[in-house]
């Protein structure tokens, strides 16, 4: 089922949480709403669910206006950051809840409920825990149960609010791979909120980057990573270095002499012993930090006193044999130049 968000606006007192947001989510896609805290991503998700009302604009499910319909009628599955499992019910009863509260006419029989719940528990690979209480489960298991519970009502849309936010790094990585796999199996239109760019890049079909109540860019992970629309998106999707400069040669879009900022991702910076061409900058190695598979080198560009961070693979680092305080040459592999938010 597709979701269309048309000119949605939300105000909390004097703070505009969402400012004229429009977005179309095609049926069956897994979309990430990515942004820093306070960017309005959770508010947007809650408005789609109907847990929050918008101050303006419309939400359409499959072309039908649902703005006025109650949460109960929208048929959305919602997964909360802190699971929100019913702690007085067993895992089985948690998953069965959505079926048991149906009006008598549409309520499945006990044996049908049992079959459905067992099937869902198998889907989330937790059949053996059916009789446990949530307090006896780990965080990752709880979130999988929360997901099974949301799927039990056969929702048209699955909404996940920072679903992996409360889990530790390893479980988080495992669960997001699992979510991707699950989505490939059941193809339900899903929207998940995250502030973790890595998570969005790995899991989503499409990433919607949000900032200050607005959508900065929307596109496939490749599009937003390779062709960021503006410095915010570039900054948010990975570590970047800034070089301030002035346009020497105009290309029609901008004037010569205008101030510009060039952005270089830290893994796009090459370090050399001898300058290959005139674009190389002289620098001094200030700090070396080993981060598992990669090594982060902080360099002081000579004369500028500007610090630049380069990320090298361990192999490259060992081949270079860099030493603290050494003089080297730095060459950016890929540069993006923005003049007041406009990319050249």
């Amino acid at each position: 089922m597709s979701i269309e968000i048309e000119h949605v606006h939300k105000q909390f007192g004097t703070f505009a949480a969402l400012n004229d947001v429009s977005l179309t989510i095609p049926s069956g896609e897994l979309v990430a709403l990515l942004g820093p805290s306070g960017s309005g991503k959770t508010t947007l998700l809650r408005i789609i669910a109907g847990l929050e009302s918008s101050d303006g604009g419309r939400i359409l499910f499959n072309g039908t206006d649902t703005t006025e319909s109650h949460v109960r009628e929208r048929k959305v599955g919602f997964v909360f950051q802190h699971y929100a499992l019913f702690r007085h019910m067993t895992v089985f009863e948690n998953v069965a809840f959505g079926l048991r509260v149906r009006p008598r006419a549409t309520r499945p029989s006990n044996s049908e409920i049992k079959a459905k719940v067992t099937e869902l528990l198998r889907l989330v690979q937790l059949e053996v825990l059916a009789e446990r209480y949530p307090a006896q489960l780990s965080g990752g298991q709880r979130q999988r149960i929360a997901l099974a519970r949301a799927l039990a009502v056969e929702p048209q849309v699955l909404l996940l609010d920072e679903p992996f936010g409360a889990l530790d790094a390893q479980v988080r990585a495992e669960l997001r791979r699992w979510l991707r796999k699950l989505h490939d199996e059941i193809h339900i239109t899903s929207v998940f909120v995250t502030h973790d760019q890595e998570e969005a890049l790995e899991v989503a079909d499409r990433i919607v980057v949000m900032n200050k109540g607005k959508i900065e860019q929307s596109g496939t992970p490749d599009q937003v990573y390779e062709h960021p629309a503006n410095p915010f998106v570039l900054n948010f999707l990975g570590d970047v270095n800034l070089f301030h400069g002035r346009i020497l040669q105009a290309n029609g879009h901008v004037d010569t002499g205008e101030n510009a900022v060039s952005y270089v991702r830290s893994h796009d910076i090459e370090i050399e012993r001898t300058p290959l061409d005139s674009t190389a900058l002289q620098a001094v190695v200030k700090h070396i930090q080993k981060l598992g598979p990669s090594v982060r080198v902080t360099l002081d560009i000579a004369g500028n006193n500007d610090f630049v961070e380069a990320e090298l693979t361990r192999d490259v680092f060992h081949n270079l044999g860099l030493q603290h305080g050494e003089r080297v040459y730095v060459r950016p592999r890929q540069v993006r130049v923005f003049v007041e938010d406009y990319q050249i």
Binding site: G77, A84, L85, F86, G98, V101, R102, A150, V153
Partner: peptide
């Protein structure tokens, strides 16, 4: 948590 109530409503209660 208010979320428990929200979860129940989302599930159709």
């Amino acid at each position: 948590e208010v979320e428990l109530e929200e979860a129940a409503v989302c599930l159709g209660a």
